[in-house]
Simulated scan of single mutants.
Amino acid sequence: MRRLLIALLVLVGLFVAVDFGAAALAESAVSRQMREQIGLVDDPNVRINGFPFLVQAISGEYSSVDVEATRVRVGQLQELSVRAQLRDVDAPLPMLLGSGPKSLSVRQVEGIVRIPANDVERMVPGIEKLRIENVDDFTLEQAVEEGGDKSLRTIDPENAVRLVGTIELLGQETEVAAIATLDLVDGQAQITPRDVRIGGDDADPLPAAVQRTLQQQFTLRIDPGSLPLAATPTKLRAAGGALEISGYADDLTLGESAVSATG
C-alpha cells in the first residue's frame, strides 16, 4: 500500500510538472502573438488561468488569459502599464505551438492602460513628488467647509481625483493639492482642477488669481494611446495611485498582424 501511495504521488507530481511545462510553452507562444497584436517592443507577460492546463489545451478552449506589459512608452509617457484579459479564448494547442499562421478567437477582451504618478508629474511644470489619490464624499465636503466652492458637492467621487505634490515657494518645499474632475475625451484622460490649495488640507482657499494660475497648471489632457486589442475606452478613474482607462471589445479574431470583429 505504501509503495502504491508513493507511486501515485510520483505520478501526480509528474502530471503537475508536465502541465506547468505545457502551459509555459503555450504562454510563450501567446506572448509572441500579443507583442505583435498590441504593438510592443518586448514580449508581454502572459498567464493562462485555470488548472489543469492540459484539459483546456485538449479542447482548445481557455476561460481566461491575462496579458500584461509594463514600462510602455507613448509620447511623453514612459512608464505606462498595459493589461488585457481575454475571456473565452478558442486556440487549439497545435495551432499555438505550430509554425503555421496563428489565429485566436476571443469572446471578450477587457483592456486597461494605467498612467502612473511619475508620468503625470512630468506633464505638470514645477511639481515634484506627485501622488494620485482617490476622492470620497468626505473629502469633497471637507473642502467646501474649508472655504471651497459649494459646487464641489456635486462632483461624483468616482469621476474625481486628488493630485498632491510639492512646489518651491520662497525657497521652501510646500505641499500643493488639487481636487479635479476626470473625463474621458476621445480615449484620452482630461483632468480639470476644481479646487487647489497650498499648505496642506486645512489651508485657506487661495486668492482667485492664484487659484486660476494653479488650475491652469494642473489642467491636463493625457493621451496614452489606444487600449490593447481594439477595446473601446469607456471608463477613467483613479485607482491604486494611478489613472486607469479601461474598456471592452467583443467577439474578436486575433490573427497575424490583425484584429477583427467576428460578430
Rank of each mutant, 00 (worst) to 15 (best):
R2V: 08
R3I: 08
L5M: 13
I6V: 13
L8E: 12
L11Y: 05
F15E: 12
F15D: 12
A17W: 06
A17Q: 07
V18Q: 04
V18D: 05
D19S: 07
F20H: 15
G21Y: 05
A22W: 09
A22M: 13
A23D: 01
A23L: 06
A24V: 11
A26D: 04
S31A: 14
E36T: 13
Q37V: 10
G39Q: 03
L40G: 02
D42A: 14
D42I: 13
P52G: 01
L54F: 14
I58Y: 14
G60N: 06
V65A: 06
T70V: 14
V72N: 00
R73D: 06
Q76L: 15
E79T: 11
L80N: 00
L80R: 00
S81D: 09
V82Y: 11
L86C: 08
R87L: 07
A91G: 03
L96M: 09
L96H: 02
L96K: 02
G100K: 06
S103P: 10
V106D: 02
R107N: 08
V109D: 01
G111N: 00
I115T: 01
I115F: 07
P116Q: 08
A117F: 06
D119T: 05
E128R: 12
K129P: 13
N134D: 12
F138H: 11
F138P: 02
E141Y: 14
Q142D: 15
Q142K: 14
A143L: 03
V144M: 09
E145K: 14
G148T: 04
D156K: 04
E158T: 09
E158W: 13
A160T: 01
R162D: 06
V164H: 07
G165E: 00
T166P: 15
T166S: 12
E173H: 11
E173Y: 15
V176L: 09
V176S: 04
A177L: 04
A180V: 00
A189W: 07
R194H: 11
V196D: 00
I198T: 10
D201H: 15
A203D: 02
L206M: 10
A208K: 12
A209T: 15
Q211H: 06
Q211D: 12
Q211P: 05
Q211T: 09
R212Q: 15
R212L: 08
R212G: 14
Q216E: 11
L220I: 04
L220Q: 12
G225R: 00
L227G: 01
T232W: 07
T232K: 13
P233E: 04
P233T: 01
R237I: 03
R237S: 08
A239H: 14
A239F: 15
S246E: 03
G247N: 01
G247D: 02
A249G: 05
L252C: 07
T253R: 10
L254W: 01
E256H: 13
E256K: 08
A258G: 13
A258F: 10
V259A: 03
A261K: 15
T262K: 02
G263E: 12
